[in-house]
Amino acid sequence: MTRWVVAVVAACVAAMPAVAQKRIALTFDDAPRVRGPFLTPDERTRRLIAGLRKAKVRQAAFFVVPGSLAGPDGAGGERRIAAYVAAGHVIANHSFSHPGLKSMTAQAYLADIDRAGAWLTGRRGVRPWFRFPFLDEGGSDKGKRDAVRAGLAARGLSNGYVTVDGSDWNIEAMTIEARRAGKPIDLDALRDLYVETHVQSAEFADGLARRALGRQPVQVMLLHETDLAAYWIADLVAGLRRKGWEIVGADGAYRDPIAKLHPDVPSAQGTLLEAIAWEKGLPAPRWYDRNTPSIATPLYRRRVLHEGQ
C-alpha cells in the first residue's frame, strides 16, 4: 500500500464520527429488604445473585441501610449482604435509618450517616459512596444541602448519585397492593413492563446526557433489592444489551467526570442528570415520564392487572 493510500485511509478514519458508547452500571438500594410480594428475603438474594451471574454482570453495587438489621431477621440480613459481596459485588452507605434530608437538620442527618458508616467500617467490599435516601439532597434549603455536601467531603464520602431511574419501587408497591387485594397478576406482562420501563429510562437518560453534556457519560441505574429484580434482572440486562448498552461496574461508573459536578439548582432532589440539565437551562421534562405515578399507575393497572379493558 502506497503512502498516499495510507494517508487517505487515515484521513477517512479520522473524519468518521466516534463510535457511540452506551455504558451503564447497576445499583440496588435499601439492602437488606424485608419479604416482598413473592419471595422470602433469602430466596430473593439467591435469585438475584444467580440472575446477575447469568447475565454476566461482574459488579453491581448495593446501598445498605444497616438500621434494617434491627428486626428479627437481622442476622439473616447481614448474611445476605455478605453473600452479595462474596459474589463479587460491592456495598456502600445509604444511611442508617433511611431518612429524608428535608425532614431533619444537617447535623442529625450526618449523625445517621455516621451510624451506618460505623457498621460498614472494616467489611469486605465497602466503597466510600453515600446515596441520599429518596434522592433528597435538601430540596430548596441550600444551606442544608451545602452543609451535608461539606460533611460528606470531610468524611471521605462521595455522592453515590443516580442518572437513570425507572421508579421500580412504584412497580413493586403496586404489585404488593395487588397481591394483598387478591387480584390476579399477569407475571409475563409484569416482566415485560419492568424490563421495558428500565430500558426506556436508560434510553431517556442517554438522550438527556447528550443534550446537557454533549457526550455520553457512564450511566448509573437506580434499582431496589426487590423480588422483581430477583426474577427478571437477567431479562433487564438482555434488554439493555439489545439497545447497545454495555454493563460496567460501579467502580468504573463513579470515575466518570460527572462525579465531580455539584449542580446548583432551585431544588436539590432527583437524578444528577436532571440537576445538570436544569442548571444548564434545558426545559422540562428532565425526567423519564414513568417516574410520574399518574402516568405509571394506570399503565400498570391496564397492562398487568388488565383493568379497564
Score class of each variant (00 low, 15 high):
residue 39 L to E: 01
residue 17 P to T: 13
residue 156 G to Y: 06
residue 222 L to G: 00
residue 15 A to P: 12
residue 240 L to M: 07
residue 301 R to W: 13
residue 144 K to H: 10
residue 103 S to G: 00
residue 270 G to L: 13
residue 125 G to M: 04
residue 285 P to M: 08
residue 95 S to Q: 01
residue 48 L to I: 00
residue 160 G to N: 13
residue 138 G to H: 06
residue 184 P to L: 06
residue 288 Y to M: 14
residue 295 I to W: 14
residue 201 S to V: 03
residue 154 A to M: 00
residue 61 A to V: 14
residue 200 Q to N: 05
residue 281 G to V: 10
residue 85 V to S: 05
residue 233 I to F: 15
residue 309 Q to Y: 02
residue 265 V to S: 11
residue 84 Y to K: 05
residue 45 T to F: 06
residue 98 H to E: 02
residue 49 I to P: 01
residue 241 R to N: 02
residue 230 A to K: 04
residue 262 H to K: 00
residue 14 A to Y: 00
residue 56 K to V: 02
residue 110 L to K: 12
residue 274 E to P: 04
residue 143 G to N: 03
residue 95 S to E: 03
residue 182 G to T: 06
residue 54 K to D: 15
residue 42 D to A: 11
residue 251 D to E: 14
residue 60 A to K: 08
residue 28 F to T: 13
residue 184 P to D: 11
residue 3 R to P: 07
residue 253 A to Y: 04
residue 81 I to Q: 05
residue 270 G to P: 13
residue 83 A to H: 11
residue 136 D to F: 13
residue 115 R to P: 07
residue 117 G to M: 03
residue 61 A to C: 08
residue 31 A to E: 02
residue 164 V to K: 10
residue 227 D to I: 02
residue 41 P to Q: 07
residue 92 A to Y: 07
residue 279 E to R: 01
residue 78 E to L: 03
residue 309 Q to E: 15
residue 88 G to W: 08
residue 197 T to I: 07
residue 96 F to Q: 13
residue 199 V to D: 09
residue 299 L to G: 10
residue 187 L to Q: 11
residue 123 R to L: 14
residue 65 V to W: 13
residue 259 A to C: 11
residue 146 D to Q: 04
residue 115 R to D: 13
residue 210 R to Q: 11
residue 35 R to C: 08
residue 254 Y to G: 12
residue 40 T to I: 05
residue 307 E to V: 08
residue 97 S to W: 06
residue 85 V to P: 03
residue 217 P to L: 08
residue 238 A to V: 01
residue 45 T to I: 05
residue 110 L to W: 05
residue 226 T to E: 07
residue 57 V to G: 14
residue 66 P to F: 04
residue 210 R to W: 08
residue 182 G to H: 07
residue 268 A to L: 07
residue 101 L to M: 00
residue 270 G to E: 12
residue 68 S to D: 03
residue 209 A to V: 03
residue 41 P to T: 06
residue 283 P to V: 02
residue 308 G to D: 12
residue 64 V to Q: 09
